[in-house]
């Protein structure tokens, strides 16, 4: 059964339609990678899933919950949206760690705040859990450091741990290595690969083609706000069928 179903999603800013008509599904434990040239709407799609933007129309369904349906104008209150967001996690290109908190505190802040309103969350395990996540990220020795004391790659790994700490159904990454120096991308891609091995459900926007090829169960090629092609890495990257995919991949190879 699909963990995520997106149907006929549309989003415009003023007059320009940025997401034209996007539908796709993904299964639990899958890694789906979105590729496509800059401006094709990848970020906007992730922002719609995370309710940082409200789609104009379409349906977003997680498991059996309809989170968004433009035909059923249900409550989209501040509070309702906040709850829906918890189905998704988002790792930003620019990390966006909270500078006044240590690596550990960055991870425990949101779970501790949630535990205050939801007594079913075991508050005593939050810190333990955060430490385990940092260990998984290879950052046990950096727990007490503030973001400005960490390298970009370390900051991004803290940000990944921070997102994981809330146990999202689907973790989204928006070009997680684009803001990093080339020598630091490896350490971040490695932890994402590790998460894929453990069947974390993920949607990853990236320009790292060989990484995408290795890690993905499915690749979506977006072009001008639509899905131009989708399939396995072998289908989309090795044997693209769509003219635009071929051109994008050719440009990409020449750029390298």
């Amino acid at each position: 059964m699909a963990i995520l179903e997106v149907r006929n999603l549309k989003k415009s800013f003023e007059d320009t339609e940025v997401i034209h008509d996007i539908s796709f599904t993904m299964d639990e434990g899958e890694t789906v990678t979105i590729i496509g040239s800059s401006g094709s709407g990848k970020t906007t799609l992730l922002r719609c899933l995370n309710f940082l933007e409200t789609p104009d129309s379409g349906v977003i369904k997680v498991k059996d919950d309809i989170l968004f349906d433009s035909d059923v104008p249900e409550s989209m209150s501040e509070e309702a949206i906040r709850r829906k967001r918890l189905h998704f996690g988002l790792v930003f290109q620019s990390f966006n760690l909270f500078p006044q908190y240590t690596a550990l505190e960055n991870i425990t802040l949101a779970p501790s705040l949630l535990a205050k309103e939801d007594t079913s969350i075991d508050a005593s395990s939050i810190e333990e859990n955060a430490k385990e996540l940092l260990e998984k990220m290879g950052l046990s020795d950096r727990m007490g450091n503030y973001p400005h004391e960490l390298s970009g790659g370390q900051q991004q790994r803290v940000a990944i741990a921070r997102a994981l700490a809330l146990h999202p159904d689907i973790l989204c990454f928006d070009e997680p290595t684009s803001a990093l120096d080339p020598e630091l991308t490896g350490e971040v891609l490695r932890v994402i690969k590790e998460l894929a091995k453990q069947h974390t459900t993920m949607i990853i926007v990236t320009h790292e083609m060989s990484f995408a090829h290795d890690v993905s169960d499915k690749i979506i090629f977006m072009d001008k706000g639509v899905i131009a092609e989708e399939g396995t890495p072998e289908e989309v990257i090795d044997n693209p069928g769509n003219e635009r995919t071929i051109q994008f991949l050719a440009n990409y190879k020449n750029g390298k």
Partner: peptide, 27 residues
């Protein structure tokens, strides 16, 4: 304060109030 600070708080399920007092204010 960069908008990314607010958005990071939002995707972590924080309320507006929590974002202002726990994330933004000290900065």
């Amino acid at each position: 304060i960069p908008v990314g600070q607010y958005e990071a708080g939002q995707v972590l399920g924080m309320t507006k109030h929590q974002i202002f007092f726990k994330v933004v204010l000290l900065q």
